[in-house]
C-alpha cells in the first residue's frame, strides 16, 4: 500500500503506532480524510486566516505588497459611519425577518403535526410553504425587484385593483418599504424551511407525552408550552443559530434589489455588501478584510450569546 510506505518513511514504526491509536488500520483514517482537509485548508481555512491577517495591512490588491499598519484599519472601522449604518441595517432587516419567521414556523409546525386536529393535506401545505426556499436567492431578488416596480410591478397593480392604493407606490425609494421588502422576501424564503425542522422535532416527541397531557386536562397552550417547546430544544437551537449566521451575512437579495448600492440613503446596505464593494469594486483589500474581521467577531459573539441564552432559557423549562 502506497500510504503505508509513506507513513513508515515519515516516522518509523513507533510514530505510526502512536498515530494509529491502537487501530491496525488507523493510517487509512488519515489517508481518507486527507483530500478533504487539503481542499479545506486551501479554499476555506487559508482564505479566512489570510483575510483576518490582511485586516492589519494596507493593500490595494495590486503588485505593491501589503504593508503592515497594525490596528489602524480597526480604528477606522470603529469610527466608520457607513460600517455602523450597515450593521444597524443588517440587524434591523434580520430582526424583521427572523421574528415572524420563527413565529410562523413554530406555529405552523405545531398545527400541521397536531395529533388532534389532523390537518388535511398537511403534506401539500408543507411542500408549498417550503418551495420558495429552493429557488435561487438572487433570482428571487430579481423577481421581487420587478414585482415591486412602481410602474410595471404586479404588486402596485394588484393593490390598485383591490382599491388599497389609489396611485402607484415607490416601494424601493422608501426606507421602511425597502427594508420591509427585504425582510419579507427572507421570511417568505425561510419560514417553510424552519417549519420543516420544527416539524421533525415535534414528530420525534413520543405520543404518550401528549396523551398524558390530555389525560391531565392540559389545554393547547399548556401542552405547547410544557411539552412541545422543551421537546424541540435541538431544533430551536439549530434554527436560531443558522438564522443568526445567515442573517448577519445576507447579501444576494439586498444586492439585487438595490442594484448593489444599498439605496435608498444606504439604509438597505448590508455588511457583506459593504465588504464586497470595498474589496472588489474599490480594490481596498486591506479595509475590506477589516470589515470581514469585524463581521467575523460579531457573528462569533452572536452565536456564543445565542447558545448561552437558549441553553439557559430552555433548561428552565
Amino acid at each position: 500500500m502506497p500510504g503505508t510506505t509513506q507513513l513508515n518513511i515519515l516516522g518509523g514504526g513507533t510514530l505510526l503506532n502512536k498515530l494509529r491509536a491502537g487501530d491496525k488500520y488507523g493510517q487509512y483514517g488519515y489517508i481518507f480524510i486527507a483530500p478533504f482537509f487539503l481542499v479545506l485548508a486551501v479554499f476555506t481555512l487559508f482564505p479566512m486566516l489570510y483575510t483576518l491577517w490582511l485586516s492589519f495591512n494596507s493593500w490595494d490588491g495590486g503588485t505593491i505588497p501589503a504593508k503592515f499598519i497594525g490596528l489602524e484599519n480597526f480604528g477606522e472601522l470603529l469610527s466608520d459611519k457607513t460600517f455602523r449604518q450597515c450593521l444597524a441595517n443588517t440587524v434591523i432587516i434580520w430582526l424583521g425577518n427572523v421574528i415572524p419567521q420563527m413565529i410562523f414556523a413554530i406555529g405552523l409546525a405545531s398545527i400541521l403535526t397536531d395529533r388532534k386536529t389532523q390537518v388535511k393535506a398537511a403534506g401539500f401545505f408543507r411542500a408549498i410553504f417550503y418551495l420558495p426556499n429552493l429557488v435561487t436567492m438572487a433570482s428571487v431578488g430579481l423577481l421581487f425587484y420587478y414585482i415591486l416596480d412602481w410602474q410595471a410591478g404586479s404588486l402596485n397593480m394588484l393593490l390598485m385593483k383591490l382599491n388599497v392604493l389609489s396611485e402607484p407606490f415607490y416601494w424601493l425609494q422608501d426606507v421602511t418599504a425597502t427594508r420591509g421588502a427585504i425582510s419579507f422576501t427572507l421570511w417568505w424564503m425561510w419560514f417553510g424551511y424552519s417549519m420543516i425542522i420544527f416539524m421533525a422535532g415535534i414528530k420525534a416527541i413520543p405520543d404518550d407525552l401528549y396523551e398524558a397531557a390530555d389525560v391531565d386536562g392540559a389545554n393547547r397552550w399548556q401542552t405547547f408550552r410544557h411539552i412541545t417547546i422543551p421537546g424541540i430544544k435541538g431544533s430551536i437551537m439549530y434554527n436560531i443559530v443558522t438564522s443568526v449566521i445567515g442573517g448577519l451575512t445576507i447579501f444576494d437579495i439586498p444586492y439585487v434589489l438595490t442594484n448593489g448600492v444599498g439605496a435608498p440613503l444606504d439604509k438597505a446596505y448590508t455588511l457583506v455588501m459593504y465588504m464586497y464593494n470595498m474589496t472588489i469594486k474599490n480594490m481596498n483589500y486591506g479595509y475590506g478584510a477589516t470589515i470581514y474581521a469585524g463581521m467575523f467577531v460579531i457573528v462569533v459573539i452572536c452565536v456564543a450569546i445565542t447558545f448561552r441564552l437558549l441553553d439557559k432559557k430552555l433548561a428552565n423549562n
Binding site: F37, L40, T44, P47, L49, Y50, T51, I245, Y292
Partner: peptide, 21 residues
C-alpha cells in the same frame, strides 16, 4: 471539531483571501 467549526463561521465570504488563492 475543525469540520464542525467551519460550519458555524462565515467562510464563503472571506473575499480578499479567496481572491488571493
Amino acid at each position: 471539531a475543525i469540520v464542525l467549526g467551519s460550519l458555524i463561521v462565515p467562510q464563503q465570504i472571506a473575499l480578499a483571501g479567496i481572491s488571493e488563492v
